[in-house]
Design a protein around this nucleic acid. Structure first.
Length: 581
RNA sequence: CGGGGUGUAGCUCAGCCUGGCAGAGCGCUGCGUUUGGGACGCAGAGGUCCGCAGUUCGAAUCUGCGCACCCCGACCA
């Protein structure tokens, strides 16, 4: 590609709205352009990189035995009603109406469609196991798109779906995808950590995320400093700081005027927050509903925070929590600021974190303005389902090893693999016959990966003050050929063109800067765009019978004899590719 | 969805407080000089000052209502 023909230019100044490195570098280098919030065009350079990422994904999916398909992005809403996810995902669904006023949606994910496809074409265990995948646009009306390609409303996902007869089959299919993901991220130069995760709106019986640790990320991950335990905070478990094992004492009412927060209360009574019980109350509603719902009263030790994802799971899932309104608090007979698990109305669901169940003699509200109770004990003074509903925080003790401490990192979720089970095959009635002739629901897995996020993460992981430093496998070009002073010296120009053609003939993708620009402009653009190898042809080099080759990001360049140039560049290219593999 | 911020040339922004000719730098076009790390001179093109309404002799500037975008949080794959 001759740079004089390339559509799009580098920008000298950083666009004001871009904050993260991947965002402003991709904009400045001319890879992407924003159309609206969370929606971007890929310009030629960006599209080349995206293609290379997709090709790596394809190779690894095919290598793992998955078969490529292409499922419709536009889908009938009824299909989503069959699984109930029209309500569950209603806040991100892009609705569409056709000319006959039929309700359609732009697909945010494809479990329903692929299960429908499977239902129509798979007949028995002889058609299985099978894993289908596609690389396709997904549409989600995100509340807050952000950071360039990191959170988009229209994005490219590789999604795969496995169908097996039993758990052992799912284990094998899931394992194969897990391995493929590990290889994909390694080849793209994105360092990832697999972490335990909540499966959210996708559902199923367990999932793992592949995350890229970066300050620019929006997920929070806890990682044990001692063992390999790593989990999204939505899911993360931890060992509660131990309670003092004293005998249960008699309940005692105490006056605590104006002490409506845990901090005030603990200071007033001069006890650690871990000796108090905190109450938080919610209304749990089905998705898409805005009234009614079930009152939920959550009790947790004062030194811990409530993890709402865990509360939803403790309630059986499928609901969303909203803080109770003042009217709902009053209706539930709760005195805010002095709420007590003792004497809660029968229609209120009470959930206790394991921390309160294992801590004797806590201070809790008296459900009476200006009063608290000392020596409240779960099981003796009040009942309530015990569950892990606490948010893991930095410094908490690891559940998987002895003496390990959890650290907190920010991360971008790059991929997510789920063990679905029959979450979709059952409601969609995708039945196959097993070897006994019995009708069975296949056990499914699904595996998603964000292509745009790989592009963004590769930049986030590989850049310097001058620009992008692409991993060779996903660079838009293999070689950036810089010709200096081509309009002044015909011999140099001829040499540059000849080298361009020779390098291209060996199969390398070459970006040839044949523009009439000053050397400084060309070098700065080359650094910004970040192609792994830069080859400079100039009158100075020409006189020495050489060209100059420099690895992007390297301190030194090397002079290579003109006659050796093609072979040397080829060898350096192979070496650069090998680094990422 | 809550909080904060910003909308003026392709980009980065000044002008707004205190109403009175639409501005700068970079980029862009042409000509000339220059040529190994974002050169220089000359000449030029380029505007719905986010939109609508209001106040005023007069609005980029003041007021109201919208819209868009960004950031933090909530939520989310």
């Amino acid at each position: 590609m001759r740079m004089s023909q390339l559509f799009g230019h580098t920008l000298r100044e950083t666009p004001a709205d871009a904050e993260t490195a991947s965002h402003y570098l991709l904009l400045r280098a001319g890879f992407i352009d924003q159309l609206m919030a969370g929606v971007y065009s890929y310009m030629p350079l960006g599209q080349r990189t995206k293609h290379r990422v997709e090709q790596i994904v394809r190779e690894e999916m095919d290598g793992a035995g998955a078969q490529e398909t292409l499922l419709p992005a536009i889908q009938p809403r009824e299909l989503w009603e069959e699984t109930g996810r029209d309500a569950l995902m209603s806040d991100v669904l892009f609705p569409v109406v056709d000319r006959r006023e039929r309700m359609l949606v732009l697909g945010p994910t494809h479990e329903e469609v692929v299960t429908s496809l499977f239902r129509d074409h798979a007949r028995s265990y002889r058609d299985m196991p099978v894993t289908l995948y596609q690389i396709q646009m997904k549409f989600r009306d995100e509340a807050r798109p952000r950071a360039g390609l990191q959170r988009l409303r229209e994005f490219t996902m590789k999604d795969a779906y496995s169908f097996d007869m039993d758990e052992e089959g799912l284990d094998a299919s899931y394992g194969a995808m897990f391995e493929a993901y590990t290889r994909i991220f390694a080849r793209c130069g994105v360092p990832i950590v697999p972490v335990e995760a909540d499966s959210g709106a996708i559902g199923g019986k367990g999932s793992q995320e592949f995350v890229f640790l970066t300050e620019a990320g929006e997920d929070h991950i806890v990682i044990c400093a001692q063992c390999n335990y790593a989990a999204n905070t939505e899911k993360a478990e931890f060992v509660r700081p131990p309670a003092e094992g004293e005998e249960a004492l008699a309940v005692e009412e105490i006056e605590t005027p104006g002490m409506t927060t845990i901090e005030e209360l603990a200071a007033f009574l001069d006890v650690p927050t871990a000796r108090t019980a905190k109450a938080v109350f919610y209304t749990a509603r089905n998705f898409g509903e805005h009234s009614g719902g079930e009152p939920v009263f959550v009790v947790i030790r004062g030194d811990l925070q409530v993890n709402e994802v865990k509360v939803v799971n403790a309630l059986g899932g499928g609901v969303e929590l909203e803080p109770m309104t003042d009217a709902e608090v009053a209706a539930a007979g709760i005195v805010a600021g002095y709420a007590s698990p003792i004497g809660v109305a029968d229609n209120v669901r009470v959930i206790a974190d394991t921390s309160v169940a294992q801590s004797p003699n806590l201070v809790a509200g008296a459900n009476r303005e200006g009063f608290h109770l000392r020596n409240v004990n779960h099981g003796r003074d009040w009942e309530g389902a015990v569950s892990d509903i606490a948010l893991a925080e930095e410094g908490h003790a690891c559940v998987r090893c002895d003496g390990g401490t959890l650290g907190m990192e920010r991360a971008i979720e790059m991929g997510h693999v789920f063990r679905l089970g029959v979450t979709y095959s059952e409601p969609l009635n995708a039945v196959v016959l097993d070897s006994e002739g019995e009708r069975r629901f296949p056990t499914m897995g699904c595996y998603g990966l964000g292509v745009d996020r790989i592009v963004a993460a590769a930049v986030e992981a590989h850049h310097d003050d001058d620009g992008i430093v692409w991993p060779a496998a996903v660079a838009p070009f293999d070689v950036h050929l810089v010709g200096l002073g081509l309009d002044r010296d015909e011999a140099v120009a001829a040499e540059a063109v000849a080298l361009y053609e020779e390098l291209t003939a060996t199969g390398l993708d070459v970006l040839f800067d044949d523009r009439e620009e000053s050397p400084g402009v060309k070098f700065n653009d080359a650094d910004l765009i970040g192609v792994p190898l830069r080859v400079t042809v100039s009158s100075r080099n020409h006189k020495a019978g050489a060209v100059e080759v420099q690895r992007r990001g390297a301190e030194q360049s090397e002079q290579v004899a003109r006659a050796e140039a093609v072979a040397r560049v080829g060898a350096l290219h192979e070496a650069a590719r090998a680094e990422g593999a």
